[in-house]
């Protein structure tokens, strides 16, 4: 296989990780929302934890995006 083609394919495959991260982040906010609707008074205090969870989940999407960037622009 042509190395350039393989690189582009790999970059595209790396983007799957970003989609998976989207599921995770959506799940975090969705769960927070359903919890917050059940007990709105407790929601304010948990916003910090929400963003910690969001940041942790998004790290992996960022890592896969980084892999994509590395494949596209740095490994030549």
């Amino acid at each position: 296989m042509d190395p350039t083609a393989a690189r582009y394919l790999a970059a595209g495959l790396a983007c799957i990780g970003m989609g998976a991260t989207a599921i995770g982040v959506g799940s975090i906010f969705g769960q927070f929302l359903s919890g917050a609707l059940r007990n709105p008074s407790a929601a304010d205090g948990q916003r910090t934890l929400l963003f910690i969870g969001f940041a942790l989940a998004e790290v992996f999407g960022i890592v896969s995006m980084l892999a994509m960037f590395l494949l596209l622009f740095f490994f030549k």
């Binding site: 940041a55 998004e58 790290v59 960022i62 890592v63 995006m65 980084l66």
Partner: peptide
């Protein structure tokens, strides 16, 4: 690991 990934995720999140 998660501590060291923080600046990376913080910067790349905004940038991306």
């Amino acid at each position: 690991m998660s501590f060291l990934l923080r600046p990376l995720s913080l910067s790349v999140r905004l940038f991306a």
